[in-house]
Amino acid sequence: MILPGRVRERAEELAGDLPAYVYDLAALDAHAADVRRALADVEVYYAVKANPDPALLRTLAPHVDGFEVSSGGEAAHVREVLPGARLAFGGPGKTDAELAVPVHRLHVESPGELRRLIAAGRPADVLLRVNLDVPVDGASLAMGGGATPFGMDPGGIAECLASLRGQGHVRPRGFHAHLASGLHAPELLRLAGAVVEFAREHGTHGEHRGHGAREVNVGGGMAVPYRRPDERFDWDAYGKGLAALRAPGETLRVEPGRALTAYCGWYLTRVLDVKRVHGEVFAVVTGGTHHLRTPAAKGHDQPFAVLPTGNGRGADDEPVTVVGQLCTPKDVFARRVVTTVRPGDVVAFGMAGAYAWTISHHDFLMHPRPGFHYLT
């Protein structure tokens, strides 16, 4: 993997103070601006679950229309960092207290959740989350397309629409769907088309006319190929496809997370030992998957670059498995990657800007936490 010059310089400066995260805010700003241009009039809400780091939120704020949160804690966090930000609140297990959080849009996950919301008597603007029975082949994660805990089938949607009649404080604004993750632009556009068609049919026609489907949130799920770190999601094609899909007067909204922030983050470690066991070479580095859980969670090799700052006996242009300090065979960053590495070298793991630090089991074995550094 190619290490940008600015990140390399910071890595060399931090060589004696690792592990650490480095976030390239200038690169994030440029990438978010490109995405904003490509999506034009499509609204963009950043999925905070991908990375809630305050510096990243502030960098993204000028380029997005709002932020999607999935807990009361995330909502409070974004409110503290960006007091005036628009919030959309999603997630399948909202408590009564979370249903009371004032947000721009609340994504209703079930008829039961809607009944609790109506009974509370508080005003709310809602999108009904639909789980359509459509193919999601090739997805890395499927939240829809069949029986999952996320959203409602058409029967659940019909039940919600019936509950909404005769009351005025819970205001239906349209539909939401996040059916799958890890898909490229053509596949996501196909799903978006199915969701928009459903929303138009159920929100503006027949017995449910007037319930409103002028807003359709088609979710996130843009592919981030860790095996090809130089490849990017085709935002231009996606934006053009959504523009063709949107009818006059409709609001289309997307919720990217990983595809916005993954590329700006680097997790830096230092090689402690290079050892050979039963013919296999292992490089043991500071830190581990308790800091960067992504490769263990997704079952992939985290892309990395080696800065040759060490010396001594190591491995020369041969397959190496890079592991952390944890007492578990699952503490693996990358398996049998051909590289050259020696004790004392710095290893920079790329694509560590999303679903990395905040999803990791920080307190396992009680190692020190990493530092956090920002390039502006």
Score class of each variant (00 low, 15 high):
residue 1 M to D: 03
residue 5 G to N: 14
residue 11 A to I: 03
residue 11 A to Q: 13
residue 11 A to D: 10
residue 22 V to M: 11
residue 30 A to K: 15
residue 30 A to I: 11
residue 31 H to F: 15
residue 42 V to H: 10
residue 44 V to S: 08
residue 46 Y to I: 03
residue 46 Y to R: 06
residue 50 A to T: 10
residue 53 D to I: 07
residue 54 P to H: 12
residue 54 P to E: 01
residue 55 A to T: 13
residue 61 A to V: 03
residue 62 P to F: 05
residue 66 G to L: 04
residue 75 A to K: 00
residue 76 A to Q: 14
residue 91 G to W: 01
residue 93 G to S: 11
residue 98 E to G: 11
residue 98 E to P: 13
residue 103 V to G: 05
residue 104 H to S: 12
residue 109 E to C: 08
residue 113 E to H: 00
residue 113 E to W: 01
residue 115 R to C: 01
residue 116 R to F: 12
residue 118 I to M: 13
residue 120 A to W: 08
residue 120 A to Q: 12
residue 123 P to S: 08
residue 125 D to H: 14
residue 132 L to K: 10
residue 133 D to S: 14
residue 135 P to H: 04
residue 136 V to T: 14
residue 140 S to E: 12
residue 140 S to W: 09
residue 145 G to D: 15
residue 146 G to N: 06
residue 150 F to P: 04
residue 151 G to Y: 03
residue 152 M to Y: 03
residue 152 M to N: 04
residue 163 S to L: 13
residue 167 Q to R: 09
residue 172 P to Y: 11
residue 188 L to F: 02
residue 195 V to H: 08
residue 200 R to E: 01
residue 201 E to W: 08
residue 202 H to G: 01
residue 212 G to W: 11
residue 216 V to D: 00
residue 217 N to C: 12
residue 223 A to F: 05
residue 226 Y to G: 00
residue 226 Y to N: 02
residue 236 D to Q: 09
residue 236 D to H: 09
residue 242 L to M: 06
residue 242 L to V: 03
residue 243 A to G: 07
residue 244 A to Y: 01
residue 245 L to R: 05
residue 251 T to D: 10
residue 258 R to K: 12
residue 268 L to I: 05
residue 273 D to R: 14
residue 276 R to W: 07
residue 283 A to L: 05
residue 287 G to H: 12
residue 290 H to N: 15
residue 293 R to P: 04
residue 294 T to E: 07
residue 300 H to A: 14
residue 302 Q to C: 06
residue 314 G to A: 00
residue 316 D to V: 11
residue 323 V to R: 12
residue 326 L to P: 08
residue 327 C to D: 11
residue 334 A to P: 00
residue 335 R to N: 01
residue 336 R to Y: 08
residue 341 V to E: 00
residue 344 G to W: 02
residue 344 G to H: 08
residue 346 V to D: 00
residue 350 G to L: 01
residue 358 T to K: 11
residue 359 I to C: 01
residue 361 H to A: 04
residue 365 L to Q: 13
residue 366 M to E: 15
residue 369 R to E: 15
residue 370 P to T: 12
residue 373 H to C: 09
